[in-house]
Amino acid sequence: MLLAIDFALLLEKLILVVVVVFASLGIAMYTTFAERKVAAILQDRRGPNRAGPFGLLQPLADGMKLFFKEEIIPDFSSKFLFVMGPALAMLTACMTSAVIPWGDKIDFFGRMVDLQIADVNIGILYVFGVVSLGVYGIMIGAWASNNKFSLMGGLRAASQIISYELAMGISLIALLMITGTLSLKEMVVQQQQGYWNVVLQPLGFLIFLICSFAECNRTPFDLPEAENELIGGYHTEYSSMKLGFYLFSEYINMFISSVIMATLFFGGYDIPFFDESVLAPNLAAILGIVALMTKVIAFIFLFMWVRWTIPRFRYDQLMHLGWRILIPMALFNMLATGGVILYFNK
């Protein structure tokens, strides 16, 4: 047969997709809660603690509130694009998780299930492609609003994300020269056997970290939605769950970029100073997921910690940092890495 479809594989991947998407939605939901809690704790406050035990039902209440809000589509907006903006933002935010290795293989009644939706050999390029699409959600939504503040926010988002993507890409090239692969799974396996990439590429990691803050529109790079300059930036005209989608996609982006950073530089599902191969494969895989999630939570905390510490950049400072500091630094890092590799491999 020409079209021999492995239905078991199809089912396996389908289940994995559903689990990963819902898990990232759930995590993003509780990241909003964690954000408020961390903000409160860093500012000597208590934070939400009324809805449910310890306020754990707060994200549900927030979501419900957004659903019950009046849905306004401005008369002067371009209606199709206005609805498409948040949908695109959400879609691209959810799509990135497809190539992330969440853990090692799991033995499911004799069938080895790979805890990765798609182990494509250009994984990191896929991530980059989808992340660059993310700016369209913001830009289209902002432009379709037909509001000057929104347009300003959209412009800022576009120029910021494009500027920082350059430095991010160049910092990754240095990493790729070391690993010699574009597959995320392959990178994790290499890090399990050798050192974590952050040891080999500290400068690259720093650049990548700063750029991913910018890509996620997080403080100090939250100029697109600077509420005290642009009202709400690109989502000024949005209300109800469409606004919720924008805010939510931001938290999913934050989660995904934490996962990417953990995978690229901190060994992914690798447990530090421990040889997983002595454990039963299932236990090792589950512990691996736990290890990855611990790293991710640490990164998410870092995101919040920075947000509640540093004030926003001015626009010219943002551009100065991106084009005149990060890109030369990334280029230097790339050249130095190449030089070192050449020197040791000759």
Partner: peptide
């Protein structure tokens, strides 16, 4: 400077909260 600022905010985790429930 950023690290200094972050250590200041971090130290606030352990501060007593003045809020009364």
């Amino acid at each position: 400077a950023i690290i200094k600022g972050m250590s200041i905010t971090f130290s606030h985790i352990f501060k007593k909260k003045p809020t009364i429930n």
